[in-house]
Design a protein around this nucleic acid. Structure first.
Lengths: 205, 205
DNA sequence: TAAATATACTTAACAGTGTTAAGTTTTCAA
DNA sequence: TTGAAAACTTAACACTGTTAAGTATATTTA
């Protein structure tokens, strides 16, 4: 049994190696430049060997995506210290914007590309860390309403609005669409102003 | 002179033909399935001939994109009849959501893919119809503020917030991310509720 | 220990992609 | 009618994801 376990462990190590090198490639060359052959070259295996460890390229993308979510959640640990729900929501939004702008390739994978979602669907699995992040958002919104800081409304509606807005900001920025609204050097600043505006606006008078 | 003019006209006709068939392919098979060879087959030319009429594939995408904006603007013509700025902004948002959900392939091209933007940048040209749509948004926001219907703020900030939110809703929906927040059959409805919520919230008490 | 089996990995290939260089056919002016 | 210019095609390059078939390398069984 110990021998089969060791083999399994080795297999897992190679899987990890493949994922690690894939992510490095992402960050260095961008999503569109990542190919099975390039990953293979990095891990010093033939391209077809990767198919012994993953079903297809999309599955590799999916697991990279998962690791992106972990990265994102780590950033939010310090959030627990903020007790005021609105302030906490605000900081969560700021973190979201920063994560997107600092890790555009990850963000692309996690929220823009359809490939990882396709895999998720035919794996029947959950969006583990993604669901977790959304759950956190809903809880904050609920909390804010309970404390009378927001006008009462359906939690899902408000959560969707807030998430859509920050996602909209990041994804339009990443895809160079916000340059069309303000000068490039003002984009980042205005994004934060928009977020501030939303929170100030939604706060019960 | 008349003969060279006729030639030019013929050239334009072929360009139009290529674009038309490209767009049909989009709608029928989706962005990712559109290839130079498939377009060529449809217009009954060899693939390389397309390069005599367009610099590269991205340029074709760019022009398809332009036509998407025209389609979108047409939808907004009836908006002029609404005099109340908030109501007009609301209807503009509803139109935006509907356009995105009804023409996901166009929407993808116009606001999600980076290819057309790349072409735009190295063409040095403007985002003609896109700019027009954004200008309309800014004017409405300004109008609403002038009439005291919105809390005063920087126009660009509010415009960016509103655009980002509707874009966020549509793009997350198209990429199947909103299913993670509410059940699939409730997505469209909740999107509209989120939009309603935003407008109700931003309206000056 | 030797043969049989299972595991790990690679080579070769298919069908597709965007794009370019070179060659052919057609059109039109001198 | 000849010659040049325009329009178009063929062949090829360098990629892409993926599969089938073959080859080594361990591991198990006789």
């Amino acid at each position: 049994m110990s021998i089969v376990a060791r083999k399994e462990k080795q297999k897992q190590e190679i899987r990890s190696l493949i994922l690690e090198e894939s992510m490095k490639l992402f960050v260095e060359e961008g999503f569109s430049k990542v190919s099975v052959r390039k990953i293979a070259e990095r891990v010093q295996y033939s391209p077809t060997t990767l198919y012994l460890y993953f079903k297809d390229k999309n599955e590799i993308l999916f697991y990279c995506c998962e690791s992106g979510f972990k990265k994102m959640l780590e950033q939010n640990i310090a959030l627990g210290l903020i007790s005021d729900p609105i302030e906490r929501l605000h900081q969560m939004g700021i973190n979201y914007l920063n994560f997107g702008l600092e890790n555009p390739e990850y963000y692309d994978l996690m929220f823009i590309q359809e490939a990882p979602m396709a895999t998720l669907i035919d794996m029947g699995a959950g969006w583990s860390s993604g669901d977790q992040a959304l759950e956190a958002l809903k809880i904050i919104v609920q909390d804010a309403m309970d404390k009378g800081l927001l006008v009462p409304a359906k939690v899902e509606t408000v959560a969707m609005a807030v998430w859509s807005m920050v996602h909209g900001l990041v994804s339009l920025a990443i895809r160079q669409r916000l340059d069309k609204l303000v000068a490039p050097e003002e984009v980042e600043n205005t994004m934060h102003e928009s977020l501030d505006w939303l929170l100030k606006t939604m706060k019960k008078a």
